[in-house]
C-alpha cells in the first residue's frame, strides 16, 4: 500500500505524524470553524487543537484528540504552525469528499518542523495524492481568560432545539441578546430586527435542557455577524453548552460525534458587544 511504503527513515524526520482512515473525520470538524483562512495548529501528545480567530473578538477551537487518529506520533511537547485552512480543506476533499459508505479517503499528515510545509498523503482506491501546504509563522492565539471559576451561568441544551432557533433568527438584527437567569425567563435568545423584536424562551425544566445552572441574571449582546459561523458547529453537534462569565464573555461548547461515533469538541468564545443595563 502506498501509505505504508513510507520508509521508517522518512518517518523519523517528522516531528509530527498523524494518520486516519477517514479524512472526513478531520475535514468535517474543521468546517465547523472555517470562517477565516488562517488557522493555528497546536499539537500536543493529547491531540490536535486548531484555532481560528476573527477581529480579536471571536475565537473558535476544534479539538481532535490523539485517539481519533489511527496513528499520532509527536516528538516534541508542543508543535505549532499556521496554515491556510481553506487550502487544507480543499486538499482533504481532493478526491471529491464522497459520502458514499465504504468509500473514504485515508490521510497521513506529516510535518517536519519549523519552516517546512505540512505534507498530506491522501489515498483513495489506490490513488495517492501528495499535497504540500506552506506553513506560516504561528501566531499566539488570544487568551480569552475564560475560566470555569468565573462562570456565572451555564446551560447544556440538546442542539436540536437551538438549531431551530438559530435557523429562524432574524438576521436583520445586528445582535443576538442572550439572557440567562435563575428566574424567568431562564434562558432567552432575543433579536431586534427591522420588523420588530423576537424572543425565544427555554424553560429550565424542558426536556431539551440537560443542565441548568444559573446563579445570576445576566443579559449580554453579541454581534450576530460574529456568532453566525458558530451555526456550522451547531449543525454538526448533538449537545451544546452555553456559558457566560462575570465579564459577559460567551463560551459555546459543541459536542460533535463523527462518522465513527467518536466524540470531538468545538468551542467558540465571543466578546460581548456592549454593556446592557440590567432590568
Amino acid at each position: 500500500m502506498p501509505l505504508s511504503t513510507q520508509s521508517q527513515a522518512d518517518d523519523e524526520q517528522y516531528v509530527l505524524v498523524a494518520s486516519m482512515d477517514n479524512a472526513r473525520n478531520l475535514s468535517n470538524i474543521l468546517k465547523a470553524i472555517t470562517f477565516k483562512d488562517h488557522a493555528i495548529f497546536s499539537a500536543t501528545p493529547n491531540g490536535l487543537k486548531v484555532t481560528v480567530e476573527d477581529s480579536k473578538c471571536l475565537q473558535a477551537n476544534a479539538f481532535i484528540q490523539a485517539e481519533i487518529f489511527q496513528e499520532f506520533t509527536i516528538k516534541e511537547d508542543l508543535v505549532g504552525f499556521q496554515v491556510n485552512l481553506t487550502v487544507l480543506l480543499d486538499c482533504l476533499s481532493i478526491f471529491g469528499g464522497s459520502t458514499v459508505p465504504g468509500v473514504s479517503t485515508a490521510l497521513r499528515m506529516c510535518y517536519k518542523g519549523y519552516g517546512y510545509p505540512l505534507t498530506l498523503f491522501l489515498e483513495e482506491g489506490g490513488v495517492v495524492t501528495v499535497c504540500k501546504i506552506n506553513t506560516q509563522e504561528p501566531e499566539e492565539p488570544i487568551d480569552f481568560e475564560f475560566c470555569s471559576n468565573n462562570v456565572t451561568n451555564k446551560v447544556i441544551l440538546l442542539s436540536e432545539s437551538l438549531k431551530e432557533a438559530f435557523s429562524e433568527l432574524d438576521m436583520t438584527s445586528e445582535v443576538l441578546q442572550i439572557t440567562m437567569s435563575p428566574s424567568q425567563p431562564y434562558f432567552r435568545l432575543s433579536t431586534f430586527g427591522n420588523s420588530g423584536n423576537a424572543h425565544y424562551d427555554y424553560p429550565k425544566d424542558s426536556e431539551m435542557m440537560e443542565l441548568f445552572k444559573c446563579t445570576k441574571t445576566q443579559t449580554n449582546r453579541y454581534k450576530m455577524s460574529l456568532l453566525k459561523p458558530s451555526t456550522k458547529a451547531l449543525a454538526l453537534s448533538c449537545k451544546v453548552s452555553v456559558r457566560t462569565d462575570i465579564r459577559g464573555f460567551l463560551s459555546l461548547q459543541y459536542l460533535v460525534r463523527n462518522d465513527d461515533g467518536q466524540i470531538c469538541f468545538v468551542e467558540y468564545y465571543c466578546c460581548p458587544d456592549e454593556e446592557v443595563e440590567e432590568e
Partner: peptide, 20 residues
Amino acid sequence: NRLTFTLHCKHGLLKTHNLS
C-alpha cells in the same frame, strides 16, 4: 403599537415575535 405572536412549542419553548 405592536402585534405579538406567541408560539407555544414543544418542550416548553416559547417564541415571541413583537412586530411593529
